[in-house]
Amino acid sequence: MNEGAYVQKLFGIPFNLSNDIPGLIAAVIVFFLLFWLSRNIQLRPNKRQNFIEWIIDFTNGIIKGIMPDEEGKKFGLLAFTLFVFIFVSNQLGLMLQLTANGTSYISSPTSNAMTTLSFAFMVLMLAHFLGVKKFGFKGYFKNTYLSPIPFLFPLSVLEEFTNFLTLALRLYGNIYSGEVLLKLIYKLATSFGIASFIPAIPLELIWQGFSVFIGSIQAYVFVTLTMVYISQKVEKE
């Protein structure tokens, strides 16, 4: 995005508030949505409970395809939270864009590389940590870097960095490009007055619909790859 970032320093740490505020909004939306869905839980589920159970089943299904059951059970909550949060983050910018005085306040949190890199970093650190915890440092090193053939060691090290970058930048690129095109269509709409405003409406509509689709796919891909990376570290090859 071309708008300036709203950077504030707190305890000498630079915070980009035009990235943090939408993140907070997305988290609040996620929390209240799921809080509302999970009220009045019963053995015979009502409509709301069916919906949240459907989401849980979906994320559990992602894990089930990748890890054995007793191993994967621990990651159910992680996959669930990650999926819902990234999904809502992807959709947030499609519905709401707020820019004032050249500073962006609300957009998709995931249209910022800092956010996606943070998530990828967090997830991969967790994966490495779990690997060390399970096999000890020696076993982890052997399993991760020397495992199929030792002389591929340099490639294995490189792979860890590419994993990190591709995981983050795939999500970022998809959402960011979606928002850029939304803004371009908006510029087109306002450039020639009413003559361009009306034809731009269906264009924007179509692209928003497609972006919803992309956002869902990307949330799914992010969670799936997260689980794949964790399982690579936790399982013996």
Binding site: N16, A27, V30, L34, M114, S118, F119
Partner: peptide, 20 residues
């Protein structure tokens, strides 16, 4: 680099996960 964002998202995510 606004590396405070990383901390912010880490904390946000962990708090969200705990609440959920």
């Amino acid at each position: 680099v606004q590396w405070g964002d990383t901390i912010f998202y880490l904390v946000l995510f962990i708090v969200l996960m705990a609440l959920l």
